[in-house]
């Protein structure tokens, strides 16, 4: 008992005061891309050719945030002169067209559907399905339940039964072998329901795009909220959900 109390005192209170206070991530972190539209077109083309995800449109100066895995190669190649990554972790978008990013981010809160705010703004129960996710998106979603993020203080919870859920939270590129289970889970959620796609895999197939063993999520379900990243930072997921459902 004494040990319990001593450890409790030593550990103290750890829950972050986000979103009331901003959190500054370490400078190495690769968050929102900044794109220099005046850079040498040759440099932009070199980045586009090298990009492992073929996520860059060099002519229009766009990054497809659905495909991008934030590997940092384009920033390194262009020495930040074409693309550089800021530590801003807010990446969520409500409209798939907005995934094609020119460096400006539309305000997610303004683009989210009002009826979702009314329906789920105070209480949101989600059923997560990992459909061939590599355990990064899963881990960084799970981490929202640790004391630092303490997700339930916002009235958002991940639940076990789809019958208790208001929506589906999908991670992974959706393997053929998980398609049925994913769709069954979706069907078991009572309407009206929301679908959140998290991570490059769920958004575009990610590293596994073009594999004959996967079925793109967008071919199966209509997605309401897109959260880019590989994996998205827990704060990226949290901020997207707060903006989309609450603000």
């Amino acid at each position: 008992m004494l040990k319990l109390i001593r450890t409790r005192i030593n550990q103290g209170y750890r829950t972050s005061s986000y979103p009331k206070k901003d959190i500054q991530l370490h400078e190495s972190y690769r968050g929102r891309p900044q794109i220099n539209h005046n850079c040498d077109p040759e440099l932009a083309r070199r980045c586009a050719t090298a990009c492992p995800q073929d996520a860059i449109d060099p002519e229009k100066g766009l990054i497809d945030l659905g495909r991008c895995v934030f590997c940092g190669l384009c920033e390194r190649l262009s020495e930040g002169k074409f693309i550089s990554f800021s530590t801003n972790f807010e990446l969520g978008v409500a409209d798939p067209a907005q995934l094609l990013c020119d460096g400006n981010f539309p305000d997610l809160a303004a683009h989210s559907k009002q009826h979702f705010k009314r329906l789920f703004g105070r209480s949101l129960q989600l059923r997560e399905v990992s459909a061939a996710g590599c355990n990064c998106c899963e881990a960084d979603t799970n981490v929202l339940n640790t004391p630092f993020f303490d997700l339930s203080r916002f009235g958002i919870d991940f639940v076990a039964s789809p019958r208790h859920a208001d929506g589906l939270f999908v991670t992974g590129p959706v393997s053929r072998n998980m398609k049925t289970a994913l769709l069954d889970t979706y069907d078991a959620i009572p309407s009206p329901k929301v679908v959140i796609a998290t991570g490059s895999c769920a958004l575009s197939g990610g590293p596994f795009r073009d594999s004959s063993e996967i079925v793109p999520l967008q071919d199966l379900l209509e997605v309401d909220l897109f959260i880019p990243g590989c994996p998205p930072h827990p704060l990226t997921i949290l901020s997207a959900m707060l903006k989309f459902f609450k603000l």
């Binding site: 492992p52 992974g172 590129p173 072998n177 998980m178 596994f208």
Partner: peptide
């Protein structure tokens, strides 16, 4: 097997950069 994405096949068919 639910997670199968065909990784070994991709590593012999994708361009090197991927």
């Amino acid at each position: 097997g639910y997670q199968h994405r065909g990784v070994e096949k991709l590593l012999t068919s994708f361009p090197f950069k991927r």
